[in-house]
Nucleic acid binder design. Structure first.
Lengths: 120, 120
DNA sequence: CTGTATCCGTCGCGATACTG
DNA sequence: CAGTATCGCGACGGATACAG
């Protein structure tokens, strides 16, 4: 079971240098609420209210903030419809789907092993 | 490019329920410093001091705390040698390697795309 | 060298109220 | 329905000093 991170190390052998853009993206994408929001959007478009209910426990403030960050990074797309009452839909972009293709195996493994990991 | 999270949804269609063990493991493993420490250990054993230097910017307090959490979850193993001066080595366990097998493609993709993602 | 203990700032985040 | 504005607290985490 050979695993290596060599391809993403810099010249000094460091993983993700401080101040490096990678750290920022890592923080956005792997944040407490970021992963859950991205996960919720993985199998389809959701409206604001649906998202709020799907990501159990998230506050409106954090949902808004997380959505704006992920939209700013181009992982999700916001589409608002000029109706009454208002309707706004959120969905993964192509970039977001690329990301989730890599994230899903990880979340899947964690979901499958969480109980055993915490059993102690 | 079809992607789905259906396998890890619960009966109510929610992703990771609040209070679920999965959320805890997610927080440990995807924490700001957790990913970097795990990443640093990915291609081999490191001593405390090496780890501190490899994970640029981490404080001693957070390094200690992160290591204890990840050790508690069984992702890393701590081995201390009764020498003077003291020597302590940290390495991934089998479980840790299983985790990193799933995490590395993600980190790799992020490292490769971070610049473009933040370019705006 | 490998940590632990303590202090203490800040800011992440939740709660609440309010608006288009 | 889909958010924004404001307040306030608690804990996350950095700096420093000290210990084994």
């Amino acid at each position: 079971m050979q695993v290596s991170l060599a391809s993403i190390r810099d010249a000094r052998g460091e993983v993700f240098t401080e101040g490096c853009p990678t750290r920022t993206v890592l923080d956005h994408v792997l944040s407490k609420w970021g992963v859950l929001v991205l996960g919720a959007l993985t199998d389809g478009t959701l409206r604001w209210g649906e998202l709020r209910r799907a990501v159990e426990g998230i506050s409106e403030k954090m949902l808004a903030s997380t959505l704006r960050t992920l939209e700013g990074d181009g992982f999700i797309r916001r589409e608002s419809f000029p109706e009454v009452p208002p309707r706004v839909e959120y969905a993964l972009t192509d970039r977001g789907r690329e990301l989730m293709e890599r994230m899903l195996p990880l979340m899947d493994w964690i979901a499958a092993n969480a109980d055993e990991i915490l059993a102690r």
